[in-house]
């Protein structure tokens, strides 16, 4: 007897549920939960992480992220405007900058700028926060420049023409007419870049840290070394999630809202 297409699809769906539930039960039964808990989630060690993981480590992660984002946004706007400039040298410079910093891994850029330049020039970074945040913001600005440029280009050409025909200068039209419209387009992707930046700050500790400048990831790693237990890293991961999840949810909400508005 031949099954109809819809019936077949229905049976396949049932079979998949059954298999998934069986797998889940197998995992739950066969894992040695006690051993796992002892190695990765010991309550006494969890408690030891607090309050320092919040007051010191998470604080440092936030400081690096905010500095990196602020710098990235300012330079990103600058490079986006240069990419759109009528002056060829500006366009060329910005395009090169963007390609270079997007093409090199952040880890390598951090090492070159954080260590290489001081060794080569004898110049010293005045502040360990800037030593991490400035390379971070330079890389972030390359990504943000492209996001901002795409947002500005998404504003219809007639907007600039209408503004210019009323006697506004190019920069006045950009500030009053174009950028406010572009912002609506670029806030969701920029929030995503913020989330990426939160996670990318975990690389900064390769530049060396003091007890005062440890970020979340480094704090977790050092905790592992001290306790010979993975719990500190798990807690650090949970703190990252506590920061990133609300933001990714916010982006999802903003995207639903724009979709609803454009109907």
């Amino acid at each position: 007897m031949a099954l109809s297409k819809r019936k077949k699809a229905m049976y396949v769906r049932y079979a998949m549920y059954v298999v998934s539930i069986a797998l889940l039960i197998a995992v739950i039964l066969f894992i040695d939960w006690e051993r796992l808990g002892n190695a990765m989630f010991r309550w006494d060690i969890v408690k030891e992480q607090f309050p320092d993981i919040l007051t010191k480590a998470a604080k440092n992660t936030v400081v690096f992220t905010v500095l990196g984002f602020a710098g990235g946004l300012s330079f990103g706007l600058l490079f986006a405007l240069m990419r759109l400039s009528s002056i060829r040298a500006y366009r060329w410079f910005a395009a090169t900058y963007i390609e270079v910093f997007r093409g090199i891994p952040l880890l390598v850029t951090l090492l070159i700028l954080g260590f290489g330049i001081p060794i080569a020039t004898g110049w010293k970074w005045p502040n360990p926060y800037l030593q991490g945040a400035i390379p971070l913001s330079l890389v972030a600005s390359a990504y943000m420049a492209e996001t901002i440029r795409a947002g500005i280009e998404a504003v219809p050409k007639g907007q600039m023409e209408a503004a210019r025909s009323l006697g506004m200068s190019y920069s006045r039209a950009m500030i009053t007419i174009i950028i406010p419209q572009a912002l609506r387009i670029i806030v969701p992707p920029l929030t995503n870049e913020f989330v990426l930046l939160i996670k990318d700050t975990s690389l900064i500790s390769v530049l060396g840290v003091t007890a005062a400048t440890k970020d979340l990831a480094r704090f977790g790693r050092d905790g592992v070394n001290q306790t010979a237990n993975a719990t500190p890293l798990i807690v650090a991961g949970l703190v990252y999630l506590a920061m990133t999840l609300p933001l990714t949810q916010l982006v999802a909400w903003m995207e639903r809202k724009t979709k609803a508005m454009s109907r």
């Binding site: 007639g158 907007q159 209408a162 210019r164 006697g167 609506r184």
Partner: peptide
């Protein structure tokens, strides 16, 4: 040119009002 344009009104086929 900006000064001169402020005295020349222009109306476009696609209106080009500022939507915000």
């Amino acid at each position: 040119i900006d000064e001169a344009r402020s005295k020349i009104g222009m109306v476009f086929q696609s209106f080009n009002l500022f939507p915000h």
